[in-house]
Nucleic acid binder design. Structure first.
Lengths: 244, 244
DNA sequence: CGTTCCTTTGAATTCGATCAAGTCTGGTGG
DNA sequence: CCACCAGACTTGATCGAATTCAAAGGAACG
């Protein structure tokens, strides 16, 4: 038995001003008093359990979500049951933008592990954004980053070789972890091989084989979900086109 | 010889209030006087020639672009020369959003045919958006639609069968044409097979074969770039998962 | 009217999907 | 504490679809 979940409650209460993700999130470049206004908009839910859904396909969007701790995946249902992973979301990354156009979500957001999220009612956010110019700019910036990750995803999918896709995937994850101040050279994958396969347009066996191949080639060391990137240089080379 | 390009000049001068794309563009749901404010922000360039670039990878973003007439493609360079088509842009669709995150464009925008564009300085747009609440909301909406098209793209790429990808592609193009008030059942493709292949992650030969296969199966009639969708029902069926 | 670019078609090859067993892991209950 | 179990992962063999290589037909444009 652990001491108690008191520390959890403490972290739940933490404000935007103290949040470790502050530099990546909406408050960037905004004065202390205005950060306070943002802070009051934010609702923090109780921890999201593994496999729990933040929102569902078809449901109306009324808030934006920011992963604060733990990773998520967004999944689009293929009508006939088949599901496609549209994206992975690490701390500091927005979720729910898929509904900006129509007002209805086009995918489900599912926690890959126990997670914490901040929720911001969209109405309120827009109201405050109109008054705080820095917030409006920053909102567009984080939306832009989100689109950038989608572009990265597209670039992975456009690679013909399975190994290249997996390589790009690991590279991009590595970059994102580094952006979070974590170790970009060694990390633990929050998602299953199945998830990765769906994300990359490959079947699970191919993902597995690609991992072992990359390991045999001395580019990575992998053991289950634990991954270490061995040659940043060769990895970057491979990422930048050179098909091998 | 044609009479003269006078009509062209006339259409160039047309304001947002009179624009046929008004319903799809930024002024949606905004009062007449505020539309006028938007209108004054908009710069209209001289026609963009086929293969001309609107912006380049790496260049700083300072405006948003809206295709007004004619189609564009956005292309990401693969460093080693290989290029990947990231999107196609029909009239009323925004371009340049790829730079929202970093402030630098991550792709080139190239006209597929002679085209007209409206350009809006981002600074000014943000300023006015802060004052006109409808504009802010509509800006987020059109950004959302743009993200939605990227998601559609991703869903095409996630299909394993080449024929399915091409099918989804034609379906989505058809929908977009209909949204423009054009015929969604018969249209002319503004892009080459090569472009389609790059967009869908297929080589040109596979695209060509897929077209002929779809024709042999009675789903479409195709002759060069002219395409007619024959069975909306069977097409929709195929689009919604049923792998054939 | 010829040249260039785009497109189609054919034959051979390759890489990933599929089918089919196993192995490893962490968690549960005896 | 150990045995068992389910889910996740790996590995092998076969098959098929898309790529590759090669060539020729068609459309567009000066």
């Amino acid at each position: 038995m652990e001491p108690a979940p008191v520390i959890d409650l403490g972290s739940l209460r933490r404000s935007c001003a103290q949040c470790s993700l502050r530099q990546l999130c909406l408050p960037v470049g905004i004065g202390a008093d205005d950060v306070d206004r943002i802070d009051r908009l934010v609702k923090r839910r109780k921890p999201v359990a593994r496999n729990e859904r933040l929102f569902h396909t078809g449901s109306a969007m009324n808030r934006l979500y920011v992963a604060r701790e733990g990773a998520f995946k967004t999944v689009a249902g293929n009508e006939d049951g088949e599901e496609q992973v549209m994206g992975f979301h690490l701390p500091g990354e927005l979720m729910g933008l898929d509904a900006l156009g129509t007002g209805q979500h086009r995918c489900d957001a599912i926690a890959l592990e126990t997670a914490q999220v901040c929720e911001v009612p969209l109405e309120d956010l827009q109201r405050v954004a109109a008054e705080v110019p820095g917030l409006q700019r920053q909102l567009l910036r984080v939306i832009g980053f989100s689109m950038g990750r989608d572009q990265d995803h597209l670039e992975m999918m456009s690679r013909r070789q399975a190994g290249d896709r997996v390589m790009l995937f690991l590279h991009s994850l590595s970059q994102r972890f580094e952006g979070l101040g974590r170790d970009g050279a060694e990390f633990s994958l929050p998602m299953t091989r199945e998830d990765i396969g769906s994300y990359l347009g490959l079947v699970i066996e191919t993902v597995s084989r690609s991992f072992t191949k990359l390991q045999d080639d001395g580019l990575i060391a992998v053991r289950g979900r634990q991954v270490r990137l061995l040659s940043a240089r060769r990895l970057a080379e491979a990422v930048h086109g050179r098909t091998n």
